[in-house]
Simulated scan of single mutants.
Amino acid sequence: MTQFLGTGVALATPFTRENEIDENALRRLVQFQIKNGVDYIVVMGTTAESPTLTKVEKELVKTIIKKENNGKLPLIYGIGSNNTSQLVNDLAKENLDGFDAILSVSPFYNKPTQEGIYQHFAAVSKASPLPVILYNVPGRTGSNMLPLTVNRLANDFDNIIGIKEASGDMVQAMQMIRDTPADFLVISGDDMITLPMILAGGAGVISVMAQGFPSEFTRMVNLGLQRENDEAYKIQFQLMNGMDLIFKEGNPSGIKSVLELKKIINGSVRLPLVEATPELKSALSIFINQLK
């Protein structure tokens, strides 16, 4: 699964000021990623505000991204649920033509045991027509997928090919890298510890920050994969303040403000999220100008 090495971007969904899908902005956003060297795109992840999109809107977004991408980059589709049987049914019906894998979040809100998480993904594995990348993000789901569970899934199901690990726990990430099969992808889901994870043997990142700074972030990741540590850390240290800022008022409000300042999309988000404050936009503007 070398197509998922390097920098993946969790794409935002641009909205007009009238709260409709901004189709032209979405096309610009896709082209911005392609032209600046990212390795693959994740569609309908957390950053896409997918819970606020209707089925019709999701189909529109998928169609635009696939057409604009035109086969240039691998595409991953985010699909998950805390209702296992519903997710299995959705996987049977979802149009996944043009996608190379799915990204499926660990069940949220229910707080399942490790055995419950294992059985959930066993069902997903059997139902999915595409390779599966697990997504562990305890800050959003309310439960943590432990390394032992990840290792069981990696060994028991050939089509479970990796995990987006977003616990923020570097020790846990290293345990996953150490214990899972050599070809299993441990992908950072936390921008701030992407480089340390890569240097420990991780496969790269599915990033929020890289969406606004694709050339800089991708260069850092590539240098890390090439073990050019000193040069990679120079970029890490340049980007760190921005990494803090884009999450200060929640995701994707921060990264949408970056993209607005770069005149790619506007900063509109859908409730219950709210647009970034003028103070945050000012701080992001200063950061962007300093980075030039």
Rank of each mutant, 00 (worst) to 15 (best):
L96W: 10
R178T: 14
I265N: 05
Y135R: 06
S81C: 04
F237A: 14
I264K: 07
Y118W: 08
Y40L: 13
A127V: 04
I187W: 10
R27K: 14
A200S: 12
E249C: 10
N155A: 03
E275K: 11
D39C: 05
N19M: 10
F121W: 02
G78A: 13
G162K: 05
V186T: 13
D22R: 02
Q31Y: 12
F121M: 07
A166Q: 00
L153N: 04
R140G: 08
G250H: 09
T63K: 11
L291H: 01
D191A: 12
P278N: 10
N24S: 13
Y77K: 02
K292F: 06
M220I: 07
L91F: 10
G202E: 01
E275G: 02
N19I: 13
V124Y: 06
A48T: 12
R27P: 00
P51I: 15
L271I: 13
L29R: 07
T13P: 02
S268Q: 13
Q86F: 10
L271F: 11
Q33T: 11
L284K: 06
Q33A: 12
F15P: 12
R270E: 09
P74L: 09
I76C: 15
I163T: 04
E115Q: 13
D244V: 12
K292V: 03
F157D: 01
K66C: 14
T2Y: 03
M174I: 15
V150K: 00
F15K: 11
K164Y: 06
D169L: 10
I133W: 00
E275H: 03
V56E: 15
I34D: 03
L271A: 15
A48M: 09
S268C: 15
I76P: 05
I161R: 05
L5C: 10
N266V: 06
R152G: 01
T277N: 06
G8A: 03
A154K: 00
L148R: 07
A48Y: 03
L153G: 05
L259F: 07
S106I: 07
F108V: 08
G80T: 04
E94S: 08
S215G: 02
L103G: 08
P196W: 09
A123E: 03
V105D: 04
S188F: 06
V208W: 05
T54D: 00
P278K: 12
S268D: 05
V30I: 03
I288W: 09
M240K: 11
D97Y: 09
G212F: 08
P214T: 07
F184D: 05
K58Y: 02
G162V: 12
L5E: 00
Q114G: 04
A276L: 02
M44L: 15
E275Y: 08
L199Y: 11
V208D: 00
A92D: 02
G204H: 11
G267M: 10
D190C: 07
M192K: 13
S50I: 04
P272D: 11
L146K: 07
V258E: 05
A123C: 06
Q31P: 00
D22L: 11
P129V: 11
R17C: 02
L146R: 05
G78D: 04
D97M: 11
S81I: 01
D169A: 12
S268T: 14
S188Q: 01
L280N: 05
I160E: 01
N241W: 14
D244N: 15
E57H: 06
L130C: 05
R227F: 08
V274R: 11
D230T: 12
Q226A: 15
G168V: 04
D97L: 13
L134K: 07
